[in-house]
Nucleic acid binder design. Structure first.
Length: 315
DNA sequence: GTACAGGCAGTAT
DNA sequence: ATACTGCCTGTA
């Protein structure tokens, strides 16, 4: 199974699914299958599909949904718009973030890439699992968790597993979690599950407060630091200004955007391939947020995609 | 065999 | 504020 960019693009140039954060999506033959919490989503090419309820949809939306057959099990209403953020004015956003030649080029090369909305519980657990490991391993951990704690769903003659409920993860024994290959992250999974079940954090509330407020709430949870918090905010809590900085973005910034975050009044230096201190992270991500504006998260996604692509990684 | 992978928390200075 | 450390585990 290949997860390179060309195969993602070959399916449909209008939408690119980035396996770098959509950990539980996979392509079988011409069809994509993905986990959205308690649901399995399916995309297949279908030029003949027609909609009788096109009213109120943008041209952009229509272009996309007319080319693909969308299915969900159990059914969710109108999920393509929800999941692929077709409610975003993508052309405005892209012109908004294209503030320099590099970003303009990066956006052109990543044509079709979108931020996808993730189910919040799945998102938070997924990124808690992402620390200090490879995408291959993250996918394995999440698949193992789904097999053990999720619900089996047979689709097209194949077994799929929905994402575990947060309650089941909260009740799970720490060793059961570890048996899924998550290692020391088991403790963090428990901490996250507990804080959700006991209403220490409420996703609906966090979606409606400012980026900074929501972030400080997430940072209180064991296992969630700056980077993981920003991913959760961007992918499931409607904070498009979040600008997660991982090692790939750090390299890109160090090479191309030093002039934005390294000014006279703020002498923050990034060592190549060296982790960011909490202070450096906050400083640099704030500068980048000011530079790219309220859709900084989109800029981050295109930059990330571009970096991975130029390194020719196999995901 | 061993370095590595999309961070984080804990400790010492 | 910064420097440094250990951490599970499969893959290359």
């Amino acid at each position: 199974m290949s997860y390179d960019l060309s195969s993602a693009n070959a399916f449909n140039p209008e939408i690119t699914i980035n396996s770098g954060q959509m950990f539980l999506w996979e392509k079988l033959n011409d069809t994509w299958y993905g986990t959205y919490g308690d649901h399995i989503l399916k995309l297949s090419p279908d030029p003949s599909v027609s909609f009788n309820n096109d009213s109120g949809k943008t041209d952009n939306e229509l272009n996309i949904i007319r080319k693909i057959r969308f299915e969900s099990y159990p059914e969710i209403r109108n999920w393509p718009t929800l999941v692929f953020r077709l409610d975003d004015d993508i052309s405005k956003i892209l012109s908004d973030i294209s503030t320099d030649a590099l970003m303009a080029r990066t956006v052109r090369r990543g044509y079709g890439l979108r931020i996808m909305r993730q189910e919040p519980c799945q998102c938070i657990v997924s990124f808690v699992c992402s620390s200090n490991t490879s995408i291959t391993m993250i996918r394995k951990m999440l698949r193992n968790l789904s097999k053990k704690f999720g619900r089996r769903l047979n689709l097209d003659g194949r077994d799929f597993f929905t994402f575990p409920s947060i309650k089941s993860l909260n009740k799970a024994d720490i060793n059961e979690l570890r048996s899924c290959g998550v290692g020391y992250r088991a403790k963090a999974i428990k901490a996250v599950a507990k804080s959700i079940v006991e209403h220490e954090i409420e996703f609906s509330a966090l979606s409606n407060v400012s980026y900074y407020e929501a972030k400080s709430a997430l940072l209180k949870i064991y296992g969630i630091g700056n980077k993981i918090a920003d991913c959760i905010l961007l992918f499931s809590l409607e904070k498009l200004e979040a600008f997660p900085i991982d090692i790939w973005i750090a390299r890109a910034l160090e090479r191309h955007y030093k002039w934005v975050y390294c000014t006279n009044d703020s002498n923050v230096n990034l060592q190549p391939d060296c982790g960011l201190s909490s202070f450096q992270y906050r400083h640099i991500s704030e500068k980048m947020r000011q530079y790219f504006g309220k859709y900084s998260g989109y800029a981050q996604q295109y930059l990330y995609y571009y970096m991975r692509e130029t390194e020719n990684l196999k995901w």
